[in-house]
Each structure stands twice: as C-alpha cells, then as structure tokens.
C-alpha cells in the first residue's frame, strides 16, 4: 500500500546506534539501538513502507524517518476478562450476609 501526501503516518528511526548509547546501561539494552517513533502528516507526494520520508507533526515540526505505518491504529485495549479477578465478588468479601 502506498501513502499519499497528507496521510497520517508513523515514522521510525534509530536515534543512537548501540555503540553511540550512554555508557551506563544493562547488558541487554547495550546491544540494541535507541529507536524513536513519531506520527504526523506525510510530506512526500507518495511513499511505500520502509522509504525515507518526512512528516509534519501536529505542532508543525518537520521530522525525517522511515515510513513504518500508514494510518497507525490504536492497538491497546481493555484486555480479556481475568478469572482471578472475576472471582472477587461482594458476596465473597462479606460472606453473603451483608444485608442479613
């Protein structure tokens, strides 16, 4: 899918390569780059995912990065019902005799 100028997109770029990072990091974090993701409106006429593009953020800043997502959706949600929590009922707390 191609993105067109003005589409709401997410870009990604590496801000610091592993060797450019702070010295004081745990071993696992040291091995990976410091990455950044920003959303905004595509400035290029058209682009494919992975292309180097520029965007205009909602406050008007122009930032460059690789196109990662087009019209990125909100992926967080309410989760699944949790049996360990569903078992907690008023009845169980007051042993069923609260109004008795």
């Amino acid at each position: 899918m191609k993105a067109k100028k003005g589409d709401w997109v997410q870009i990604h770029f590496v801000a610091l390569k592993p060797q450019e990072r702070s010295e004081h990091l745990p071993e696992d974090t040291k091995k990976v780059p410091f990455e950044i993701r920003i959303k905004g409106f595509l400035q290029n006429d058209e682009a494919n995912v992975g292309d180097l593009v520029s965007i205009k953020t909602p406050i008007g800043r122009i930032v460059e990065g690789n196109l990662e997502k087009i019209n990125p959706k909100y992926e967080h949600n309410f989760g699944e019902p949790i049996p360990e929590l569903l078992e907690i009922t008023m009845d169980s707390l007051f042993e069923g005799d609260r109004n008795g």
Binding site: L16, R21, S22, T29, F34, R37, I38, P58, I59, H76
Partner: peptide, 26 residues
C-alpha cells in the same frame, strides 16, 4: 500506549522511544 492516545487527543506531538535513559538526551 493509552497515554499516547490521550496526549494525541489534546493535540500534542508525541515522541516515542525504546527503553533507556537516553530519553533525556533526546
């Protein structure tokens, strides 16, 4: 992620980083 949604609703630019104290650098 919920906080990002909330900030976006108020019209902010949100810069999302991976794990690390270099958040301060950026």
């Amino acid at each position: 992620l919920e906080k990002e949604r909330s900030c976006a609703a108020y019209g902010s630019e949100i810069v999302q980083t991976t794990v690390g104290p270099e958040l301060f650098y950026y």
